[in-house]
Design a binder for these strands. Structure first.
Lengths: 246, 246
DNA sequence: CCTATATTGTGTAATTATTACACATTTATT
DNA sequence: AATAAATGTGTAATAATTACACAATATAGG
């Protein structure tokens, strides 16, 4: 057991003055936010990308990003950049991970924080300010500019994990959806097929779906019932975990 | 469906020159790493803390952190800082989250990336260079300096989650451990009590524990069998997930 | 209007995982 | 030799998961 030793010379400890000098001078690094914006449309999971306009990456797609201002909170910067680049506000936005290899950006040292957002393609109008802002089927996302492929892969993986543990997916669907929509969503995100009956059983047993007593319109087959997700009930009841499993 | 529109003026797009100017000039921010180092001893989960030496936080404890150099990778910085401050190397180290509110540090704008490390207290000798470097029972960790309490809470929560899904816990135990040790560890991390028989059944059914045919020594009661974790087997077999549950 | 097509809605049996719970055994200590 | 303290073990009840098939309902097209 290690015990405290007040008398040891604090070699690695710095005074506030030293730290201030370091913070103010040569140790600073440019910091950016990159937004990974997922949407769901035509039963496919999509992501918003723009063309890179850097010569080094001509023709390649990239994530939406920009530098963080020295006087704004990191989360705030994420919302600002998302708003600026797509017109979107009032959406789910979550920090995923930070990427900081020295040479990840051709303009110099830029450490970037990835934020992930899930939006309902039907209900959010995009404000297209940027270079070919585009929804891309995630199946076709390869070879992005910078280290954006790695960032994208990380975010997709985290989405796959989180969507199984939290009702995130509903942010990607219209307010009223059919069970088929819901299953399509999960199948698209997780890239698997599920048994329809068991999928329904599972969601009904969770007891968060509210039957709206409405039917789908304009489908070329027997229409399904429409449901909404009861977020209030979920918030009240949530959290029970504990289940070791690996 | 949004389609690409090459002719839209790219208001938000910047040339490499513009970005370079931004990156080189006034937009830079100090970046630090904070290390949350968990250990397990006396059936308690512990964390390494040092005294803050800033006047503002006199008497308070803080995490081990330092600034990232402009020419080193972020992960590299985390390993360097951990090594520098504790003498530890060759340990599990993982990025958790980034904290970036404007006023989190009194010396100016410093965005910090939290890294979490799990070490075996018995098998790693600490190199005490710092101000009262100390193992603290996590139950007594309150009111840390800076926003370190928030960072600590986030890391502990993530540890609680991850330890249930991955065999992380074994990094905190000696190579040979009893099932009681293992259960104590889980109970300390998750802060719950578990049924002994069911705990054993669970771990035996996973089939990753190797019976070493050795017994505990120097315990004041019937000694238990010693086991090790079969990491190779785990690596081969891992990944099955898919289980929607919330 | 009738038929074909596509998709919805529904139940059960088998298997597997989880929970709750008690007593005999082994070792160290006195 | 007796005591104290912890180990090691099994079963029954319940809950969750999986695999699987057929009738009902709407649209589309002739």
């Amino acid at each position: 057991m290690i015990t405290g030793q007040k008398t040891i010379p604090a070699k690695n400890i710095k005074t506030l003055q030293v730290i201030q000098t370091e913070v103010e001078n040569s140790n600073r690094i440019a910091l950016s936010v990159d937004c990974i914006i997922f949407g769901f449309d035509e039963a496919k999971l999509k992501v918003l990308l723009i063309r890179s306009d850097l010569k080094k990456y001509t023709g390649k797609w990239s994530l939406l990003g920009d530098l963080v201002f020295p006087n704004e909170d990191l989360d705030q910067a994420a919302y600002r950049i998302l708003k600026q680049r797509t017109g979107l506000s009032d959406v789910y936005l979550e920090q995923v991970s930070t990427f900081g290899t020295v040479n990840r950006h051709p303009a110099g040292r830029v450490v970037t924080v990835a934020y992930c957002s899930l939006i309902n393609v039907q209900h959010h109008k995009l404000n297209i300010l940027d270079n070919e802002l585009h929804w891309h089927d995630i199946k076709n996302v390869t070879d992005l500019a910078f280290d954006h492929q790695q960032i994208f892969d990380t975010c997709l993986q985290q989405l796959q994990k989180r969507v199984q543990e939290h009702p995130l997916g509903f942010n990607l669907l219209p307010k009223k959806f059919s069970l088929r929509d819901l299953q399509n969503l999960y199948e698209a995100i997780l890239d698997i097929k599920m048994d329809r009956r068991n999928f329904r059983k599972k969601f009904f047993s969770m007891d968060f779906l509210v039957d709206l007593n409405e039917m789908e319109q304009d489908v070329p087959h027997r229409p399904g019932k429409l449901y909404k997700f009861n977020f209030e009930k979920y918030e009240k009841r949530k959290k029970k975990w504990v289940g070791i499993d690996f």
